[in-house]
């Protein structure tokens, strides 16, 4: 009988030793993607104080067991004689180490090609040349050499000047092409980085766009004594856009750059100080003149006449001349349009 009981006790002990069940008040939070389990059950403080290491080990064992129970429940697969579990994607949000990459902005050509549906075709590295009777590379090593061999003589076109150096012409043409490409590349970079590039100063008609040329024409027209008021225009000619602020005869004032707070404060303080100090500004010359006038020095007629002439004000002072206000150009037009709106 005793042996029977002890047998049962032994069996149950073994079962508890080998069991995979763990009892918890609150369920653990799992994130199987990161193999993470969080146990928010309160800790047993007395055991923790008594034997820290044993208690943490026991606690961790239970939690690892619970985590493994979850993992073993996942769908499995056999890969090279080992069983792998398929982990779900992790939900634990961690910061990245670098920001997300930004997509590269398209160049002007790429934009155009996309709109028109032009696709890049791969060029062959070597091309057969009938003239030289051999393969020559389309770029790079030995290309320049091949060109030199090929162009030992150049035809003078019927339309061109017979004395013109065709070799030089070809060379400069090539150089200009390279320069143009470089300029376009830089322009693309500026566009991508949203850098403002000067709209003027580019006078090469081959490189500049129609827009740029129109800007130049519009601005140069204003370079007369009358600020371009009497310049003739071509029929249906359009003005360059967005130039109103730049034009010298414009009624719209260009915004001056931002004044730093320190400067602004200094200016304001100067004004305030001059008012507060209360000391009137003494114009010494004026004072002396007045003194001379009223202190019986009137015998000298010449002097007084001179002074009176000097002190006489110009006739037209009240009406200030201003080109900008009276100009019949854009200012008025603009006002009218505003009214209409």
């Amino acid at each position: 009988m005793n042996a029977y009981i002890s047998n049962i006790v032994d069996k149950s002990l073994r079962e508890t030793e080998n069991s995979i069940t763990v009892n918890k008040h609150l369920q653990l939070e799992y994130d199987l993607g990161t193999l993470l389990a969080t146990d928010i059950n309160s800790l047993d403080l007395t055991r923790l104080r008594k034997d820290k290491n044993d208690y943490t080990k026991q606690l961790s064992r239970d939690n690892v067991q619970l985590l493994f129970n979850e993992i073993w429940r996942l769908p499995t697969d056999r890969v090279e004689e080992s069983i792998v579990a398929k982990l779900p994607s992790s939900n634990f949000v961690l910061p990245r180490s670098r920001p997300l990459p930004k997509s590269k902005p398209l160049t002007k050509w790429e934009q155009f090609a996309k709109a028109k549906g032009i696709k890049k075709t791969k060029k062959t590295k070597q091309n057969w040349d009938d003239q030289l009777n051999k393969w020559i590379p389309s770029y790079g090593y030995k290309r320049a050499q091949a060109d030199k061999e090929k162009d030992w003589v150049l035809e003078v076109p019927a339309t061109s000047d017979p004395m013109e150096d065709q070799f030089l012409k070809k060379k400069t043409g090539k150089r200009e092409n390279v320069a143009k490409n470089e300029l376009q590349r830089l322009r693309n970079i500026a566009k991508a980085k949203k850098i403002k590039i000067p709209r003027l100063g580019l006078t090469n008609s081959e490189l500049s766009s129609a827009k740029e040329l129109q800007t130049a024409v519009t601005l140069t027209r204003s370079a007369t004594a009358s600020l371009g008021k009497f310049q003739n225009k071509l029929p249906k000619e359009k003005e360059g856009r967005g130039l109103r602020r730049l034009m010298p005869n414009s009624s719209v004032k260009s915004k001056s750059g931002a004044v730093s707070t320190w400067d602004e404060k200094q200016n304001n303080m100067n004004i305030v100080n001059s008012v507060i100090s209360g000391r009137p500004k003494l114009n010494v010359e004026k004072a002396v003149g007045r003194h001379l006038k009223y202190s019986g020095n009137s015998d000298d007629k010449e002097e007084t006449s001179k002074k009176s002439q000097r002190s006489r004000k110009p006739i037209n002072t009240k009406r200030k001349r201003s080109l900008q206000k009276n100009a019949p150009g854009k200012g008025k037009k603009k006002k009218e349009t505003h009214k209409r709106r």
């Binding site: 193999l35 993470l36 389990a37 969080t38 146990d39 928010i40 800790l43 606690l59 690892v64 493994f68």
Partner: peptide, 13 residues
């Protein structure tokens, strides 16, 4: 080896 991470105690949350 990828470790299992166990966080014990209510203070973590």
């Amino acid at each position: 080896t990828k470790p299992c991470l166990i966080f014990n105690g209510p203070a973590w949350d």
